[in-house]
């Protein structure tokens, strides 16, 4: 058996025994085996050595090795996939979201129509704040695999907060049960929090949050940032308000209340409109018509709605990425599909 095969076995062994991180001894052995294989010039081994270090917690070292690998073998998609994957598993995921995006875009160019790359790219773009691109990637991933629950989660989240489509709240609420059956961690309950809140199910939202963070010990130092991050995101979600933004009675609340600049500007414009109607002759001389005012009112509302969706998505979707991705990185190992996309599987022939 070659050093590379030994390394792959060790990698899969450490992943199988995943418990809020890879099994320490096995992942070290895996890294050493990959190092030995890399000396023979195998690009997959260089990627594997970096991934093993990244999973052991050395994100900076892993990143450096992967950047070297992309420079040495620019045509190999594996290094780019690994770079994107590790960036999305870093503790400060928003800081590395742009790097994850470019790495995964490069990977997608080299290996098109791979579901897990599309899905990871959707996550990276969402964390970066590029919601339209993220939505397109999530949809591409769902075309390849309609059962991809992670792609469904991100697609629904962006439809809800970037598109203002409340029907996607149901997807978020129903998704965790299905995902848990497929072996996913309890982190997926965090998506249900957004779904419940959008449907006005406040009690259920709190229950979903408890389910998402319940696996972590209270007050445990290494896990506290994960728990607090989820709780902070939930608090901000509450500020955003329940239900679909900008509908019915919520509109006045959403624009800041009856004394807001929006409401008062609207009132001033309506008063001006009335004045013009009453003395049209004078107004025409100054080239202001009722139509001009109506059009300005419409444009103001449309711009406010679009802006609120943009800002809301920046708050909610990126906040979700900030809370959810580190939880997933802690509770779940990288998926086998991603390891396969990096070439870190043994081909038995």
């Amino acid at each position: 058996m070659s050093a590379f095969d030994d390394a792959i076995d060790a990698l899969h062994e450490s992943i199988a025994g995943w418990n809020r991180g890879a099994v320490p001894g096995t992942i070290s052995r895996c890294a050493m085996c990959f190092d030995a294989a890399a000396k023979e010039g195998d690009p997959r081994a260089a990627v594997g050595a970096a991934v093993a270090r990244g999973l052991a917690g050395d994100h900076e070292g892993a990143r450096r090795r992967l950047l070297e690998a992309t420079a040495r073998w620019p045509e190999a998609a594996g290094a780019y996939v690994a770079l994107g994957m590790l960036a999305l598993r870093s503790p400060d995921v928003l800081a590395f979201a742009a790097e994850a995006s470019w790495a995964l875009i490069a990977a997608r160019s080299l290996a098109p129509a791979v579901g897990c790359i599309e899905r990871a790219l959707a996550v990276a773009l969402a964390a970066q704040g590029e919601f339209m691109g993220a939505l397109q990637c999530a949809r591409a991933a769902l075309v390849i695999d309609p059962d991809d629950e992670e792609a469904r989660l991100w697609s629904a989240l962006m439809r809800l907060y970037f598109g203002g489509d409340v029907t996607s709240a149901s997807v978020l609420v129903e998704l965790p049960t299905e995902a848990l059956l497929r072996g996913r961690s309890t982190a997926v309950w965090l998506g249900a929090v957004a779904g419940n809140y959008a449907r006005g199910e406040f009690h259920e939202a709190r229950v979903s949050l408890r389910k998402a963070i319940g696996v972590f010990k209270q007050g445990a130092t290494p896990e506290k940032p994960l728990v607090d991050s989820a709780r902070r995101w939930f608090r901000e979600l509450r500020g955003f308000g329940a239900g679909v933004p900008m509908t019915g009675e919520r509109w006045v609340y959403d624009v800041g209340g009856a004394q807001s600049e929006y409401v008062r500007t609207r009132a001033a414009m309506s008063a001006f409109r009335d004045a013009i109607v009453q003395s049209g002759g004078r107004a025409t001389a100054d080239v202001v018509t009722v139509l001009d005012i109506d059009s300005a009112l419409g444009a103001m509302e449309a711009r406010a709605r679009r802006g609120m969706l943009e800002y809301g998505a920046r708050l909610m979707v990126r906040g979700f990425a900030e809370a959810y991705l580190p939880m997933v990185a802690c509770l779940e190992p990288p998926s086998l599909e991603l390891l396969a996309a990096m070439g870190l599987v043994r081909l038995d022939g």
Binding site: G241, V255, S260, E261, T265, R303, A304
Partner: peptide, 15 residues
């Protein structure tokens, strides 16, 4: 007044 970023004001209120 209409061209102001009213959405930004709304987000400030949410936060």
């Amino acid at each position: 007044a209409a061209a102001k970023d009213h959405a930004a004001a709304a987000v400030r209120a949410w936060l």
